[in-house]
Design a protein around this nucleic acid. Structure first.
Lengths: 128, 128
DNA sequence: TCCTATCGTTTACGCCTGTAATCTAATTAC
DNA sequence: GTAATTAGATTACAGGCGTAAACGATAGGA
């Protein structure tokens, strides 16, 4: 299931504060993006239709919840990005981001640590 | 200027072997994607129209060249990806890729090196 | 010189997207 | 109880995209 650019904004919001009422989403995105309420409603509706959100009726209103995991969507989107732009290779993408992104020393350290453990695992015959 | 998913395939090919004749592109992508020649022609035409490719006529045929730099497109696409999926933050994206991508020990080493120099620069008051 | 093969251009078409107005049903206020 | 508000559903519409067939011009061979 394919989530469009604009729809990601909605999904991000829902993932962060699930469950939400449409009101909250509408207000938030009105501020963020200058979207009209109607536009946000369309997004919500489409996302429900494509199975990314589900609703639970509470009186007159609905509560919206994600029905797909953020992780899965991130993974799919990342894959497709890598495929398109870096010929499916993670390493060049990583090099690119490291080169051109702003990173705090803490972030750098954290990534290094992760790389270390990954390298260690690679060497360890029993763990790979 | 926005390059679509399918168009990226064409651009990647042109960037790699510029200048190319349409023939080469058509054959290559017929194999890779099972696209009909007509489809590839459409892609080329649209890319010329949107200013991503330019042509130089050589007799009856054209030679196609990129008229936008790969780097710029990669940068724009990366930005948009980060924005959409990781709220514009490079660090979480990096963590994600490091965690879930297959990396050879050499690649890991290379990325670590780059991170080291980046960290070093950060500390050096005269270089930042 | 005329036909044919070929390359680029035009046209096609249905689906997705961004953007939004309108409609309808139900709830709330008076 | 009727009017006004509101939330979700339906409809709208232009432009992009994936996919491709049809068309037109031209160069090269017969």
């Amino acid at each position: 299931m394919q989530i469009s650019d604009a729809e990601w904004q909605v999904m991000n919001l829902v993932w962060e504060s699930s469950p939400v009422e449409s009101n909250e989403v509408i207000e938030e995105l009105a501020q963020l993006n200058n979207w009209s309420p109607a536009t946000v409603k369309t997004m919500l509706h489409r996302l429900v239709k494509k199975g990314a959100l589900k609703t639970e009726s509470v009186g007159k209103k609905y509560l919206y919840r994600a029905s797909v995991r953020r992780y899965d969507c991130v993974r799919r989107e990342s894959r497709s990005f890598l495929e398109r732009v870096f010929d499916g290779q993670a390493a060049p993408a990583l090099m690119h981001f490291v080169k051109y992104a702003k990173l705090t020393p803490e972030e750098i350290a954290e990534i290094q640590e992760l790389l270390d453990t990954k390298a260690a695992k690679k060497k360890d015959q029993w763990n790979d």
